[in-house]
Design a protein around this nucleic acid. Sequence first.
DNA 1: TGTACATCAGTGAACGCGCGTTCACTGATGTAC
DNA 2: TGTACATCAGTGAACGCGCGTTCACTGATGTAC
Lengths: 210, 210
Amino acid sequence: MSWKRRGRGRGYHHGNLKEALIVAALDLIGEKGPTGFTFAEAARSAGVSPAAPYRHFRDRDELLADVAKRGFETFADALTSAWDEGRPDPARAFERLGHAYLAFAREEPALYSAMFESGVAISDHPELREVADRAYGVLRSASEALVATAPAKSRPPAAMVSFHVWAMAHGIASLFARGDDGRRMLPMSPEELLEAGMLVYLRGLGMEDA
Amino acid sequence: MSWKRRGRGRGYHHGNLKEALIVAALDLIGEKGPTGFTFAEAARSAGVSPAAPYRHFRDRDELLADVAKRGFETFADALTSAWDEGRPDPARAFERLGHAYLAFAREEPALYSAMFESGVAISDHPELREVADRAYGVLRSASEALVATAPAKSRPPAAMVSFHVWAMAHGIASLFARGDDGRRMLPMSPEELLEAGMLVYLRGLGMEDA
DNA sequence: TGTACATCAGTGAACGCGCGTTCACTGATGTAC
DNA sequence: TGTACATCAGTGAACGCGCGTTCACTGATGTAC
């Protein structure tokens, strides 16, 4: 059915404009930050008239929210697969989880900033909240599995642990693990820093890991 | 000499426009985030023609950098005074330092976002780097004083400790301690969360505090 | 103390620009018969 | 299999807007004599 896409040009109909716009937005955010992204430019770089995006998104903000949503999805997937249900043991899996967090922030800076710095109000987009919760849920259940390995009488609250882990990972990602200039030079890699931090923290919880 | 400022209006000359513009910028950032701030609107809200700011700032970016600089100065001062040279003892002073960090992020959200989310490239503004270093320096020397209380043979590296503390505080501030909606609900206050986190962390370092 | 002049810090009008958004439209695709 | 028609996903021209920036200017202030 190659006559559906004659040559390599596109006909009057783009075919998958919605997707193309999201990708274009992502590129622009990667180049100039979430601030620099404009609806018009996304259309232009998708090779389409400035009115076309309105067939797929109510406005600029909705496109941005869609990008952030995709970010949280990808993020949740990455975390889920890194955690791998706690195999071979929670301590080891937990360490992988931390690495995955930083790897995501570094390898997908555009998604990361769409998620956390774009000014999209999560509360305005219920489906965004849902998928953001899914990402947090991975951290949460990993924390639960981890604290469950502690002796029952001195078991720290999993919620608290998950917030601490999240904060430390997010803090390191924001301050040290981004491509931008202006980030402070570290005497070690962000991964090492996080790993050391988690090690100290877990020891403080009374949980020596393998 | 009240004839210098007749009535409460201003004459042709504003008198302290530079300062007024910084304050106006701060207000705007507080209202709409660093993205929403425009040069023209700052001028307008300082009651001055849109060309006037150019007498004091090369361009919009320079004004933003000035705001960020002021932010780091205020921040450094707040941290310095909270640390109070480690009185009465490093552990107690360290706890105050953490509170001061979060208090700043909460009470001066406009400054905080000008510093960390405005997209000002610190590396492009040497005087900004300098004052940012001063703020970090407080964290650094506090960490040094703190680890110095540990037995010499098991003394953790102060640089690492300072980065961990900074990351955790920044992470908690960014994720939980901001006025914006969309921030996740916590089962405790950000201060309690940070305090608990630091307690666990320090215990992990082998430093039980007073 | 008064006057001339230099400097400073504003004005206000104008500009070109890109943005977000709307509108009536039209080419391409899918479907019923 | 062919034809009529509905629907969909684009076009392109136009709009009003606010922004950043420039320019020649002018009122106010400070200073030399």
